[in-house]
Simulated assay, not measured.
Amino acid sequence: MATGRQGGVFVTGATSTIGSLLLPLLHERGVAVQALGRNPVAGENCAWHFLDLADKASDVPAVQADALIHTASLWLLPGWLEKFHARGVRRVIAFSSTSRFTKLASASPYELEVVNKLIAAEEHLAAECERLGMAWTIFRPTLIYGGAGGDRNVADIARLVRRFGFFPRFGQALGRRQPVNARDLALACVQSLDVPASFNKAYNLSGGETLAYVDMVRRIFETLGRKPVFIPVPIWAFRVAVRLARLHPRFSHLTADMALRMQADLVFDHQDATRDFGYRPGRFDPAYLTTLR
C-alpha cells in the first residue's frame, strides 16, 4: 500500500472517472498529488496544474514527483515519458483496455483504430520505460462503470432505459460480462504503486462477478425501479438505429458491432493481480445510476 510513501504522484486525467476517484484515495494515505489536466479545478486533495497531453510541444509543469498514474487515454502518453522522467518519475501506472483483445476482429474502422492505438501505446510504454529505467504497470480493465457516470457503457444503457422504457436486444444476449467498478480500479493503483511484484507487468482487471449481458441490463432496469422490457431487434434495424444515434455527440462512439458482441463472452481472469497486489473487485452494483440523469 502507498501509506506513508515519501515521493509524490502525478495523476493525468485527474477529472476522469478513475482519476476523480483516485485523488481522495491517495490523499487519505498522505500522498502528495500533482493533478494534471486541461481543466484544473480547485481542491484540497492535491495541487492542480494545466497540461494538455495532446500538445506534444508543451512540457510537464515544473514540479517533482517520483510516480505517474496515467488515467487519461493511453495513446496520449507517447512523447511524454522522457519529460516525466526529467521531473523525477521512476514509476508509471497506466490504463489500457481489454478491448485490445475483444475488438481485434471488429468491422468498425473506428474500433480498429482504437485497438491499434492501444497496442502501439502499450508497446511504446514498455520499451520507453525500460530505456529510461522506470518501473511500469499496465492495467487493462473490462467494462468500466461507476464514478460520476463518466462511463460509456452502463450509464448509456441507463439513459436509454430511462428515456424509452425498454432495451433493444439482438439475439438472446447471453454473452458473459464482468463489469468493473471504477473505484476498484482506482484502488488497484494505490495497492500496486509500491509493490515490486507488479513492476513491468500488464494485468487484465475484470470485475468480481460474471453475468450474461441480458442479466447485466436486467439489473440496471431493477436498480432504476423499472420492469425489465427487452425488444428483439434484427441486426439491420440495429445498424439503422446506431447510425441515427451517432448523430448525437453523446453516442458518437456507438457501433453496430455492439449488437453482435451481446452474444460473445468477454471474460478475463484477474488472479495475477489478486496474487501480486491484493486486487479483489466487488460484484456488479450499479446503485450510482440512481443519482444520474
Results as ranks from 00 to 15, higher is better:
Asp272Pro: 00
Leu266Val: 12
Arg280Pro: 00
Ile119Met: 10
Gly4Trp: 06
Gly88Phe: 01
Ser73Cys: 10
Ser99Glu: 07
Gln191Val: 10
Arg90Gly: 00
Leu53Asp: 05
Val89Trp: 00
Leu244Met: 15
Ala155Asn: 09
Gly207His: 07
Ser206Gly: 14
Thr17Ala: 02
Gln271Lys: 01
Glu130Asn: 11
Thr210Ala: 11
Arg239Gln: 11
Ser106Cys: 11
Ala273Arg: 00
Ala212Leu: 05
Val9Cys: 12
Arg152Trp: 02
Cys189Tyr: 12
Val41Arg: 14
His253Phe: 08
Ala202Tyr: 08
Pro24Gly: 14
Val60Phe: 00
Gly7Lys: 09
Leu193His: 04
Lys227Ala: 12
Leu205Met: 06
Ile18Leu: 04
Val217Met: 00
Pro228Trp: 04
His85Met: 02
Pro196Ala: 09
Gly79Val: 04
Arg87Pro: 00
Asp151His: 06
Glu113Gln: 15
Leu193Gln: 05
Leu211Tyr: 04
Leu247His: 13
Gly30Gln: 09
Glu209Gln: 15
Ile157Glu: 01
Val240Gly: 07
Glu222Arg: 15
Phe50Asp: 02
Cys46Trp: 14
Arg163Phe: 07
Arg239Asn: 08
Leu211Asp: 03
Ala107Leu: 13
Cys129Ala: 01
Leu23Trp: 12
Gln6Arg: 15
Val11Arg: 05
Met216Glu: 03
Asp55Gln: 14
Gly207Asp: 12
Val115Ala: 07
Gly30Tyr: 07
Ala105Ser: 11
Asp59Gln: 13
Pro234Ser: 02
Leu51Asn: 01
Gly171Glu: 10
